[in-house]
Design a protein around this nucleic acid. Structure first.
Length: 430
RNA sequence: GGAACGGUGGCAGAGCGGACAAAUGCACCCGCCUUGAAAGCGGGAGGCUCAAAAGGCCCGGGGGUUCGAAUCCCUCCCGUUCCGCCA
């Protein structure tokens, strides 16, 4: 959520910034929020004055009773009783308005960072680095889609995954499964110097999924376990962001750096029929996420650090990549500023998004109620959150199969992964 | 799933219808004392809302009773222990 106070103090700035997203309905939501907020504040003043009166009368009753003046006490009680009726009515109105305001506020997106590039769609995302590791030319042996190579090598069995779980599920076998696990372990180990490893729940409550901004707007994208009122997580961002929800952290604890490997579940509603082959899109996949909870001042540096860490992993895997910045029209609703890391897959002839690193300013932290206290200062302040995929398995898995495919049809395993694959240097058909 | 007992400030823990934002201890901050520190003594300090003051709200969440609820009632959630089941 953005701070409601911004609507009162900097309405024009909010409008201008939100207009950069190019979503007309957002401006309408802002107007609605302003109207509700104004009414709510008037009502609050009215209700509080009434309450003050009731509180005062109640105290009088206590005093009169003790003094034995029961008749006078009775009169005051009657007056207070009458006011109580009005108070209850005002409170009911208040509750209704507040719920409406919250509902609108939850749907208003974050304010883009001043440096986020303007643009209307992903076509406008500028490439800010790369291509890196791009060979002058790819060999014919690399122009083979990973699903063909994987089938020949017997390391991917999506037909049986479909038999077991339905369309859009994948299943790796043998060294293919080992490779998926190796990528996760590698990503965790590479970031263990600065991040605490967490193994969080992958099923979460509605409140937790709301904190990150996935609800209420994107309910269709998540699997719901209705009987138990739980949701499957689309990313480890969800449980990690809420790890300190409702808590007040000491300034010295920041930045808190957390990382987690989790399975990720996405319904991919609206994507039926797209990327049906191979590993490019699935309902369930593995990912290692790195995340920071920080002060606003620490955030810009952390954002660069997270991008750098994601980049280092891809570079170590000897894959061609580039970094793009997400423009205002393509940015996620919770995002303040974000960058994507794309890997080139010669077999598919496509740039695959393998990592997305974002700064959420205080948008998620306000929803999750994560605050911190500065030394020597009164009060608390909303924290900032940032996160990024250190490594998302499926597309990296696919890119390895395509980039590292050898003329003889085998796939070379990058050096850095071999210790995680029982020393295997390549995957070849039997 | 069943039973019992709990959920109060950063932590521990009292309060169980009327001046309770809430005793006390620990931790914390500021003084005094001291060469410095500890101990001791004195003082301070919760969060949210409001531009601020006033006011209001917050004793797990929600609802109810009452002139008045941390305190009584209902309900949900969470925790601990025991039983059952189980990887």
């Amino acid at each position: 959520m953005i701070d409601v106070r911004l609507l009162r103090t900097d309405l024009d700035a909010v409008r201008t910034a939100q207009a950069r997203r190019g979503k007309p309905d957002v401006l309408a939501q802002i107007d609605a929020a302003v109207a509700l907020d104004t009414k709510l504040r008037d009502l609050t003043a009215e209700r509080d004055a009434l309450r003050a009166r009731v509180n005062d009368l109640s105290k009088q009753v206590g005093g009169l009773r003790k003094a034995g003046k029961n008749d006078e006490a009775e009169a005051v009680m009657n007056e207070s009783r009458a006011l109580g009726e009005t108070e209850r009515q005002l409170q009911a109105d208040f509750d209704g308005l507040q719920a409406q305001l919250r509902d609108v506020m939850l749907r208003i997106p974050n304010i883009p960072h001043v440096d986020a590039p303007n643009g209307g769609s992903d076509a406008d995302n500028p490439v800010i680095k790369g291509p890196v590791n791009m060979p002058a030319a790819f060999g014919d042996h690399q122009r083979v889609p990973h699903w063909e190579t994987a089938t020949v090598l017997g390391i991917l069995d999506n037909e049986r995954a479909t038999k077991i779980a339905g369309a859009m599920f994948t299943m790796q076998r043998g060294l293919g499964a080992t490779l998926a696990r190796a990528l996760c372990q590698f990503a965790l180990d590479q970031n263990a110097d600065a991040f605490e490893e967490i193994r969080p729940p992958s099923l979460v409550t509605t409140a937790t999924l709301t904190a990150t901004g996935h609800l209420p707007k994107f309910a269709d994208d998540a699997f719901a376990i209705e009987r138990d009122d739980l949701w499957t997580i689309p990313t480890a961002e969800v449980p990690l962001t809420s790890l300190y929800a409702g808590e007040v952290l000491d300034e010295a604890q920041l930045p808190a750096r957390l990382m987690a490997y989790t399975p990720c579940y996405r319904r991919e509603a609206g994507s039926a029929g797209r990327d049906t082959r191979g590993m490019l899109r699935a309902h369930e996949f593995d990912k290692v996420e790195i995340l920071a909870i920080a002060t606003p001042e620490q955030s810009p540096t952390l954002l660069q650090e997270l991008v750098g860490r994601a980049e280092a992993l891809i570079a170590a895997l000897e894959l061609p990549y580039r970094i793009i910045e997400i423009c205002t029209g393509d940015m996620g609703g919770s995002h303040h500023r974000s960058f994507d890391l794309e890997v080139y897959a010669p077999g598919c002839d496509a740039w695959l998004e393998v990592s997305s690193v974002s700064w959420f300013s205080d948008y998620q932290a306000r929803r999750a109620d994560i605050r911190f206290k500065r030394h020597g200062q009164k009060g608390t302040e909303i924290a900032n959150t940032l996160n990024g995929s250190a490594l998302a398995v499926p597309r990296v898995w696919a890119a390895i199969l395509e980039n590292h495919r050898q003329p003889d049809g085998s796939v070379r395993i990058p050096e850095v992964l071999r210790p995680y694959m029982r020393g295997a240097a390549s995957m070849a058909s039997k």
